[in-house]
């Protein structure tokens, strides 16, 4: 065994994987390397769109969610002369230098789910967080009387997603119920922070009517806190955000009464479709909202089935 053999082994493996003959257009979809359920759905939607359109569809991921690896993949795809790139950036700002080089090489770039700052990208396809959080806030309006007390579990406030979800919820709620008292639990998308914060909020406030969360992980933390405080499912209403398998499980168990669900598969699908359209030199919108859906106990089963979330749920 020596280096020559080793190199040959690697090379033979590589040759075995040479792609089939060229299709007309080549589209690269570069993910952030996340392998959780949400991203499995987004990536699945993207792959479906690539397959249906009959283009050559390349899907690559940043190893371990490492930005420098994603930079290298973008550079390699420029070398590969792909016709368009759809990308879920590991980091909104950090990917910009490579994206700018792709744009300079005449390759359209579509950001999927997460935006890109510092580059004039072709299009940005994602849930409009403010609108989706409005849906969550409007549901809360119907559950509350003016003057009631509400807990809001935030996402990271150093990030646009976290800021927008909070603003969307509070603006919608305050528009109709101006005197609602909002107890804020600040987190950086951390479930334990959410649990600790909600525990503290429940201890110091006896009369909380509703808890709304910026993401379903926060709702999981809130449920743990409520269990710890001896509160029964439904005693305090809970609104989640994401439509994740864990979130819908909570709804089936009676803990969650509403969820502003993102259309995860649609984000990936629309992202790739937009990239294909851009590759065909068609005009595309600079910002595409894939919408949100208010999941309630009455429609949770249908939503779970249609969106593909059901396959990841524990409670059937």
């Amino acid at each position: 065994m020596n280096f020559k053999h080793q190199a040959c082994c690697v090379a033979l493996t590589l040759i075995g994987m040479i792609p089939a003959a060229h299709a007309e257009l080549t589209i690269a979809y570069i993910t952030n390397g996340n392998t959780n359920e949400g991203w499995t759905l987004i990536n699945g939607g993207a792959a479906d769109a690539g397959k249906k359109a009959g283009v050559k569809f390349i899907q690559l991921a940043a190893e371990r969610g490492e930005l420098s690896k994603q930079l290298a993949i973008v550079e390699d795809m420029i070398t590969r002369h792909v016709d368009a790139i759809a990308i879920a950036p590991v980091d909104s700002a950090g990917i910009a230098p490579a994206v700018n080089r792709a744009l300079a090489a005449g390759i359209p770039v579509v950001a999927v789910d997460t935006g890109i700052t510092g580059a004039k990208i072709t299009s940005y396809v994602a849930t409009d967080n403010i609108k989706a959080a409005n849906v969550q806030g409007n549901w809360a309006v119907d559950q509350l009387k003016d003057g009631d007390k509400v807990v809001y579990v935030t996402g990271d406030q150093g990030q646009s997603t976290g800021q927008e979800r909070k603003k969307g919820f509070i603006d919608a709620l305050k528009a109709k119920r101006p005197n609602v008292k909002i107890v804020e639990v600040s987190t950086t998308w951390d479930q334990t922070q959410a649990q600790n914060g909600v525990e503290a909020a429940l201890r110091s406030n006896r009369d909380i009517k509703l808890i709304a969360c910026a993401w379903d992980g926060g709702a999981l933390g809130a449920v743990a806190a409520m269990k710890g405080a001896g509160i029964k499912p439904g005693e305090i209403k809970l609104a989640g955000f994401d439509g994740s398998p864990g979130g819908l499980d909570m709804m089936k168990n009676g803990w969650q009464q509403a969820n502003a669900a993102q259309m995860l598969a649609k984000i990936g699908q629309t992202g790739v479709e937009t990239a294909i359209a851009a590759a065909k030199k068609q005009k595309v919108e600079a910002r595409i909202d894939t919408g949100a859906f208010l999941v309630l106990p009455s429609n949770v089963d249908k939503f779970a089935k249609d969106s593909g979330v059901a396959q990841f749920m524990k409670v059937k």
Partner: peptide
């Protein structure tokens, strides 16, 4: 780079690099 150009997934890339390192230490 080669595996990116040949569109091989990151999981296989991780496996390939890990295997190459083990072989090198073996040598």
């Amino acid at each position: 780079n080669g595996m990116n150009l040949l569109e091989i997934s990151q999981f296989k890339q991780m496996m390939a690099i890990g295997a190459v390192v083990i072989i090198a230490v073996w040598i």
